[in-house]
Design a protein around this nucleic acid. Structure first.
Length: 531
RNA sequence: GGCCCCAUAGUCUAGCGGUCAGGACGUUGCCCUCUCAAGGCAGUAACACGGGUUCAAAUCCCGUUGGGGCUACCA
């Protein structure tokens, strides 16, 4: 049975490189109906932190990459490593080294000065038993056989070829530290062997470690697993991805409004391909994944494509699902109120879906709806209204009506005291614009008041259709066009020049808030237009 | 420095001796359109360089250049 593992060290948040490695291991195991396990490699006591461990587990859970066995921790397996270390010692395949760090440093500097490869001198390699004392501080080193210039090789499945290295290049590396904690190369080998890991899929930063591990497998009498090394993920500058490239932690993507499906899909394509397929569900990945099509070269992380995928998956979700996900983000941020799911929000979110790339954007673009109070209109928006040629009212058949139109009679607001129109201003264009705008808005108010907006007789889509048909009639009757008037309605209702369609906006807002906003906007126009 | 790995458009990639070098993101133009999107159509752009092998090389070999990794009592 195929068994894979993801073995992060809790010395940092789970980043997207690690997430991709986990994903590859997961889908590879599932492809063969095998097992995927999580092992926390926490042998670096200095840098390992509980919060990182929790972050890794939470992140994997969010991505849906769940371990088939309870996670194991190297810190609780110390006795096992000790036992195998003793075995190597007893068999003469490893030896105690009493050299101090300072001495080692000195040796190294000397070799570097002579521009030689800095390797351990072998000072303690053949110490006679009477020169050894376990009570003294010491490490355990692996005794690498390199006398005969032997090659150590292993097959890499992503390259489909053998990688070999001369044993002369392999140092007598430390397998057990002074404090009795195993080093990485030693612990992984024992764990992978004992846990029955059949395939090791990991970053190619481990390519150079693999020969050492192969040597350990042989010395320990274990059968080496299959190896497959995946290339690194680079930032925009072509350098290995790190914090300075911006968001690298998986949970950051959640909080930035990405869907796990999108991240997973992006990641799987970053370094693996199945022909020209771009959109892949986790089921597709499991079905098609193979090691042969993992790419060997490093990949640059490209947020644009991730955003495109995210937009794609957002469109697939129902409004309800989106609301739940958006609210879930806010739990983490502990700000803003929750979005209440209703027919109104549903229609609005469905209208927003094709317009956004992240969940955060949905909430931002719902701002006009979520805002219970009055909209603060931006004076700069008034120029947008001019663009839509309010002056051309006079060219319509409304000229006659307009001449009879008296602001005070039609003004529904209760604050008109500061505004007075003199008839001799009628030639002034700005006056006409304002007058026309207010006339139109008042007419619109009358129309909307008669809309049957609060009836229960439609479903959401039915409402939109009803509003649309009513508006068509309204425009037809008044010889106006939606194209001409849409912007002023939009701005009145949302305070923005960009929004979903105005019918959706009106439905979402409901009659009462719609009317209130138009009244407010009329007031705003009166006090701010052309001032 | 030594060793190992890698190299198709701005980016992710298909390709596995004979293709008009395909797809996707981005970008540009057009259509659609109440704004913005979405959607549709069209365009743009690549085999790092130099030698071989071969009738034929993006594909195989060697070198150069460039990038990455390892060279820890980190993983």
């Amino acid at each position: 049975m195929v068994k894979t593992r993801f073995a992060p060290s809790p010395t940092g948040y789970l980043h997207i490189g690690g997430a991709r490695t986990a994903l590859f291991n997961y889908i590879y195991a599932k492809h063969y109906a095998g097992k995927f396990i999580l092992r926390i490699e926490d042998t670096d006591y200095e840098r390992s932190l509980k919060k990182y461990e929790e972050d890794i587990i939470k992140s994997l859970e969010w991505l849906g990459l769940v371990s088939d066995e309870p996670a194991s921790y190297q810190s609780s397996r110390l006795d096992i490593y000790k036992e195998y270390c003793q075995k190597l010692l007893d068999e003469g395949k490893a030896y105690n080294c009493y050299c101090s760090v300072e001495l080692l440093e000195e040796d190294k500097n000397k070799l570097v000065a002579e521009s030689k490869k800095p390797m351990y001198s072998g000072r303690c390699r053949n110490l006679p038993p009477d020169k050894q004392n376990n009570a003294l501080p010491h490490v355990v080193r692996f005794k690498t056989h390199r006398e005969d210039g032997h090659l150590t090789k292993f097959k890499d499945l992503t390259r489909d070829q053998f990688v070999s290295v001369n044993n002369n290049e392999i140092d007598d590396f430390v397998i057990m530290r002074t404090d009795g904690i195993p080093t990485y190369n030693f612990a992984v080998v024992i764990d992978d062997a004992l846990m029955g890991i059949t395939h090791i899929i990991r970053g190619d930063d481990h390519l150079s470690n693999t020969p050492k591990q192969v040597l350990l497998y042989e010395a320990l009498g274990f059968k080496p697993p299959e190896f497959a090394h995946v290339s690194m993920i680079l930032g925009n500058d072509g350098k290995r991805l790190s914090k300075r490239h911006g968001a690298t932690a998986v949970m950051q993507y959640k909080n930035d409004g990405f869907l796990p499906e999108a991240l997973i899909n992006y990641l799987v394509r970053l370094g693996w391909s199945h022909g020209n397929d771009e959109i892949l569900s986790i089921a597709d990945m499991i079905k098609y994944f193979d090691l042969k099509h993992i790419s060997k070269s490093a990949a640059v992380f490209n947020k644009e494509k991730l955003l495109w995928l995210n937009a794609h998956y957002i469109k697939q979700k129902t409004a309800k699902e989106l609301v739940d996900m958006i609210n879930d983000i806010d739990i983490d941020n502990k700000k803003d109120k929750k979005i209440a799911y209703s027919e109104n929000t549903s229609i609005l979110i469905d209208a927003l879906k094709p317009r956004v790339k992240t969940l955060i954007e949905i909430k931002e673009k719902m701002g006009f709806y979520l805002n219970d109070g009055n909209i603060i209109y931006d004076k700069n928006l008034l120029s947008e209204i001019d663009k839509f040629k309010l002056n051309e009212f006079d060219n319509s058949e409304h000229g006659e009506k307009l001449s009879k139109f008296k602001l005070n009679e039609h003004d529904n607001s209760d604050n008109n005291s500061g505004y007075a129109v003199k008839h001799n201003d009628i030639q002034d264009n700005s006056f006409n614009s304002l007058n026309n705008a207010i006339f139109f808005l008042n007419t619109l108010i009358n129309f909307i008041e008669n809309l049957n907006l609060d009836s229960q007789s439609f479903n959401g889509a039915g409402y939109i259709n009803y509003i649309k048909e009513s508006f068509n009639e309204f425009f037809l009757k008044n010889k106006w066009s939606l194209k001409e008037k849409a912007m002023i309605i939009r701005i009145a209702l949302t305070g923005e020049k960009i929004s979903p369609g105005i019918y959706e906006v009106i439905f979402a807002l409901g009659k009462k808030r719609t009317l209130q906003r138009i009244y407010n906007f009329i007031e705003f126009l009166k006090t701010n237009y052309n001032q």
